[in-house]
Amino acid sequence: MATSKTPYACIGLAVTLLVWGSVWGLFYAPAETYMGDVQRIMYAHVPTAWNAMLALSFAFLCALMSLWRSEMAWDNRLEAALEVGVVLSALLCMQGAIWAKPTWGVWWDWDPRLTTTAVMVFAFGAILALRQFVEDPVKRATWSAVATVIAFADVPIVYFSVRWWNSLHQLQSSPETVSKAFHWPLRINAFGILFLMIGLISLRTRVAALRREEELAPPLPETAPRRAPIAEGARS
C-alpha cells in the first residue's frame, strides 16, 4: 500500500491553479461579445466537461484491463474512476442547467451534449449501485467491468440519437467559439481540474484497495472481549 503524499500534492496544485484560473476568468477576462458575463461559466464548465470525459475514458481503460488481466488493482482503479467520473458528470449537468437558464431561458434544454451527460450519469451511476449489491469481489469486478464496457460503447449511440431527435425541432448555436482572450483561464482551470481529478482518483483507489483488503482478509476476531456479547446475544 503506497502511502506517498502525491495525491495531496496533486490536489494542492489543483486548488492553486483553480483559484488562479477562476479569479482571472471572473475578474480580469473581458466579457464575451454576445454571451456577456454569462460566458464566464464556461471557464468552469468546459474544463469539467473535458475531465469528466477523461475520467470515464480512464474507467473504460480500467475495465478493459480488469477483464484482460483480472487483477484487483484495476478493479480498484475502475471503482475510483467511475465514481469521480459520475460526480464530475453530475456537476456538469448542474453547470449546464445554470448556463442554459440565462442563455436559452430554460433550465433544461434537450441539447445532445447535456442530455448525453445526464444519460451517462445514470448509466455509470447504476454500475456503482450494482457494485453495492454484489458481495463476491471477483464477480463484482468482472460484472462492473463488463457493464462499463457496454455503457461506454453506448455513449456515442446515445449522443447521435439525441442529436438526430432534437435537430428535427431546432438547431442550437454552440458556445464553442472562444477567442484568444478567453484561452488562458480556460486552460489553467482545465489543468486545475485535471490535477484535482488525478488526486481524487488516486486517493479513492486507495480507499477501494483498503476495503478490498478488508473483504479478502476480514479482521480476525479478537479472542476474549468479542466473544462475551455474542454468547449473551445467543442466550437471550
Binding site: T33, R40, A44, A90, L91, I98
Partner: peptide, 19 residues
C-alpha cells in the same frame, strides 16, 4: 448581448466549489 447574469455565474462557481 445577454445583460447581467452575474447571479448565474456566481451560482455556477458556488455549485462547482461546493460539490
Amino acid at each position: 448581448v445577454i445583460q447581467g447574469g452575474w447571479e448565474f455565474v456566481w451560482a455556477a462557481y458556488a455549485v462547482t466549489a461546493t460539490i
